[in-house]
Computed example of a mutant assay.
Amino acid sequence: MITCIATDMDGTLLNAKQEVSEENRKAILEAIDHGVEVIVATGRSYEEARYPLSEAGIKCPVICVNGAEVRNADGDITYSTGIEGDKALKMAQLLNEIGLYFEVYTNKGTYTEDYERGIDIIVDIFTTANPEVSEKQVRQSAKERFDKGHINLVGDYSKIFNKPEFIVYKFLVFSFDEALLQTGRDVLKGIPSIAISSSGNENLEITSVDAQKGIALERFITEKSLNAKDAMAVGDNFNDLSMMKVVGRPVAMGNAAEAIKDFCRYQTASNNEDGVAKAIREALQTTSV
């Protein structure tokens, strides 16, 4: 039977309104009531992840920043790992040289060197993926992301990299130029002990090689004295692949990248059609008979 469920957030648990739907909320609470360990695994920081979860009344552990940080249900950090400062500085120099915009996720918040460019890129990405939502509404939400402190402005990233109290969790790189993103990927491949993944066609996510959703989920399962073959992972993109590889029931969203669908033995509906709820209920029904 399924004893553990891990779900991605963006493009998976959250719909186009960036909300947990009522059906997804009820299905997660049903799973918890059945004694199933539920954990959210996201590329978001904990600060960005906890608001939609709190609004939905969901209290559970969270794998944050692709596994660079893990929090228990009370929000306490139980694990963290980062990129060394000198390595982060080299990565920033290389990305700046080829003209790629990026944000830096740390244990003390997320940072950008360019407020306006950050706003414009978020607006472009979200309106492209969700044409039914007005640009004005998206721009307001993007500004709120900065104004509420989810993104902090810094004049020079080196001020972060050179301070020992900062742990650099992740570089999130954005561009609609696929060739430029590939150049960034190729350049960064030369840096040892980092992992490069993606949560969309327009980004790269760079973390320590030890900071991956699959590694964090496997550790969580072991700590709970469970078996990975009895776990389910639901996701839509390449940064979800590592956790799909460690579970017995990998589930691709209906809106997932084709390569993710090809890998997974199970599929569900899209994130706008309560896909997570359908996947949970199918798993619970299948394993209870």
Rank of each mutant, 00 (worst) to 15 (best):
T3R: 13
C4L: 15
D8M: 01
V20M: 02
E22P: 00
R25V: 03
I28A: 08
I28Y: 07
V36I: 15
V40Q: 04
A41L: 00
Y46C: 00
I58V: 09
V62M: 06
C64Y: 00
G67C: 02
I77P: 07
T78E: 05
K87R: 13
K90Q: 12
M91K: 06
Y105G: 00
Y115N: 06
D120W: 01
D124L: 12
T127D: 02
T128N: 05
T128M: 09
A129E: 14
E132Q: 15
S134V: 06
K136L: 03
R139W: 09
S141I: 10
D147R: 11
H150W: 13
H150S: 14
D156G: 03
S158A: 14
I160H: 01
I167E: 15
V168W: 08
K170Q: 15
L172I: 02
D177V: 04
E178D: 12
Q182R: 14
Q182G: 00
G190C: 01
E202V: 15
E205K: 08
Q212N: 09
A216M: 05
R219M: 08
F220A: 10
A228M: 09
A228I: 05
A231Y: 04
A233H: 01
V234S: 08
N237H: 14
N237V: 04
S242L: 03
M243P: 07
M244E: 10
G248W: 00
M253C: 02
G254L: 04
N255T: 08
A257T: 04
Q267E: 13
A269W: 05
G275K: 05
V276T: 03
A277S: 12
I280E: 03
E282L: 02
Q285T: 11
